[in-house]
Design a binder for these strands. Sequence first.
DNA 1: GCCAATACAATACAATCGTCTATACAGTTG
DNA 2: CAACTGTATAGACGATTGTATTGTATTGGC
Lengths: 218, 218
Amino acid sequence: MSSIPAKKSLVSPGRKPMISREDIIAAALKLLGPSRSVSTLSLREVAREAGIAPNSFYRHFRDMDELAVALIDMAGESLRQIIGDARQRATLEVSVVQSCTDAFMEQLRADDRLLHILLREGTVGSDAFKRAVERQLSFFEEELGQDLIRLAALKGSGLCQPALTAKAITRLVFTMGATVLDLPRDKQDELAAQIVKMVRMIIAGTQTLAAIGAKKTD
Amino acid sequence: MSSIPAKKSLVSPGRKPMISREDIIAAALKLLGPSRSVSTLSLREVAREAGIAPNSFYRHFRDMDELAVALIDMAGESLRQIIGDARQRATLEVSVVQSCTDAFMEQLRADDRLLHILLREGTVGSDAFKRAVERQLSFFEEELGQDLIRLAALKGSGLCQPALTAKAITRLVFTMGATVLDLPRDKQDELAAQIVKMVRMIIAGTQTLAAIGAKKTD
DNA sequence: GCCAATACAATACAATCGTCTATACAGTTG
DNA sequence: CAACTGTATAGACGATTGTATTGTATTGGC
């Protein structure tokens, strides 16, 4: 992506920046929590937390919306990294599904603020914000779709509309994940188990439909 | 459920109310839209729209939060009514799934503000608000679960964990519905078709898993 | 007709918001 | 050294927020 002060001379005369984009992002993250969403953050509040004057915010972001989009992009990249790792750790013993959902739930429980944002704020906020969330979700769907195809080929099981299946799984897991965040610790495991079952249900469904479709075309 | 001035003398001397709870709710609904969520509404704004002084708002609601919960409850009841009708209209020709999702999508397209709220604001807002949404969703799941059981008995097909299946379908349809709201008219039908397929996928999955489970216990 | 109860309006308050202008500071460059 | 330049700050503006207080209009029962 591109940082805001796009035009930057090779040497930079003038006062050294006291604060970076990342510092502001960190400050914003510190303010966020289970009962505090990005859309309720004010510019002044973030600036206060970052220890800068309200106006200094503008040196790094055009407005709060741009900060929000930056947060979403970070969240998406972070989670894809995590899931990517989990994918590679998956063996023939531990299924990809189990491995990935485990990683997902672990990250949920780690109270990852970035993940919070990605899960729960896709439906409110500015258009730019919603589009950013949608983009990250579609990245996920794409990767998951590839996974499903690979998995089906490996196991020789059918696969009905991989893209659609990936979309269903992604959206379902993300909403369910969002509700997990509001649950007390002791109920989280229960819901986590439910999520895994739901995913298996969808996968079983796509395989069954594929089998029926194949039979019909015989 | 209960109006705010709970203590009401049997006889009521005094000025007649010029405005009702419902008027305020109507004003709030008029302000809402695709790019305006309940959580961004201010008390003054609603009062202005309703044509009353800011303070008069308190005669009917304790705060904006209570208004929001009232909206959610209305939305839930409304949609359940609609789906209930669709359920009864379903014949052997037109499946319950098709009939209900059709009714759902039709309501979506009708730009029903109440439905907007229910779909997209479950993850932000106050605890009371989130709990209200969660409650309405669980009502849905309950009814859908009964439907699934009836359907399975009728068709003689298996059914693996009806409650879980109902939950998966409900959550998936609701999130997908929320993304439909942000789509241009011409893409909505496409996504609507996808949703139906996803639901069929889950149902196929639950039946398959039930069959496997039955075979195992043989 | 009067009284008490009620509903609403008017005004005001402190707090917060985003943003504008002007200014002080810290480096680099000549 | 002085001049320039980009950074950060200070202060203020107008707007808006939720709410407390106070006042006024209207109604029904006596």
